[in-house]
Nucleic acid binder design. Structure first.
Lengths: 198, 198
DNA sequence: GTCTATAATAAGATAGAC
DNA sequence: GTCTATCTTATTATAGAC
């Protein structure tokens, strides 16, 4: 067990980053080997079921870590509108750092494989549910009903995922900053309205 | 010029549908040939630059048609909130018809190729701009400022594109119906607020 | 304009040495 | 656990007959 994690970990890391930039079919195993610096023999040692398993683990593990970071970032929030705004701007910064070549998004993999790999579809589905659930938790803590919190959390998750697509296409973080601004505005109204009604 | 359009048109049509389901690298030319029923010789006759050109034309032409349909559907609207709601539910129905295997979305292609093909990136960028512009037009007609209209139109476009990803992953139109409901609610507030302020 | 055959390359996966 | 060589198959693209 000593340092056996390094090769595996490097594979997971490299796989996730390449998936973000090129999607599932655009990313070859040889490229993953090269990028990670891990030996090719290790790939099938750690992931006997090949590409599908490697990708599933990469998204499952990195996605869970991402969902946890979102949860922690939101759980102490005083103003949900401001918290969501910050989260979106933070994503815009990450995108900016990569010159809009990647973001914490595996939407391409989701769309490419949802019809062909039940294993990947389920892994990605769980990950999206974790994102939505993290956001929903914050909204519940601020007095929204269960049903409304799911709706808003779904809207936030979807709009972020979609905005990344627009940013990548435009090579600009403008769309993300637009939806950040707009969601802050709309959430403020929703909070005021919700507080008045209860 | 007689019926030379049929082979080309079938190629465009088949390409677009396969791209929706599998993305760029997941869709092979052989599959396009087979699905379209068009002869293989025709592919390089109509699209001498191969796959990249075929895909660019497919998304360019089908995307433009889609943007025009959106514009027409929205331009006579009396209530923007209701119009957006209808548009989203209409997308949900289309998705449902295909059992959530495809929708009018090429987000996968956008993410896969934005770093590697400038030609495809520009084609897709223009198409997204056409979507946003169609929605923005309706909002301007209902008294929103230029800046606010862009923001809201971007949010609507992004959230639809992102919701399709969630629906495909969940094999359910629920996420789309959630964001439709929520956007209708939020837009109503925004309209009331905007009308009061002017 | 269309068809068939095929070239050239790269993919995922495996076997066996070490 | 790792490395190298290789098998099989699929990919994009082209050449030349019709």
């Amino acid at each position: 067990m000593k340092n056996t994690m390094t090769a595996r970990e490097r594979l997971i890391q490299a796989t996730f980053e390449l998936l973000e930039r090129q999607g599932y079919h655009g990313t070859g195993l040889n490229q993953i080997i090269k990028e990670s610096g891990a030996p090719k023999g290790s790939l099938y040692y750690y992931f006997p079921n090949g590409k599908e398993e490697l990708v599933s683990r990469a998204i499952g593990e990195q996605g869970k870590a991402l969902a946890d970071r979102i949860r922690r970032a939101l759980e102490g929030a005083q103003d949900p509108a401001e918290a969501v705004y910050s989260m979106m701007l933070h994503l815009a910064e990450k995108l900016e750092q990569s010159k809009c070549t990647k973001a914490g998004s595996f939407a391409a993999v989701a769309l490419e494989t949802s019809n062909t790999s039940e294993m990947l579809r389920e892994t990605i589905n769980k990950t999206y549910d974790a994102f939505i659930s993290a956001i929903q938790g914050m909204l519940l803590a601020h007095g929204f009903s269960e049903a409304r919190a799911v709706q808003i959390a779904t809207l936030i998750t979807a709009s972020m995922e979609g905005a990344v697509v627009l940013c990548r296409t435009k090579k600009s973080t403008e769309p993300l900053r637009h939806i950040a601004q707009e969601m802050k505005h709309l959430l403020r109204s929703a909070i005021a309205e919700n507080d008045a009604g209860s």
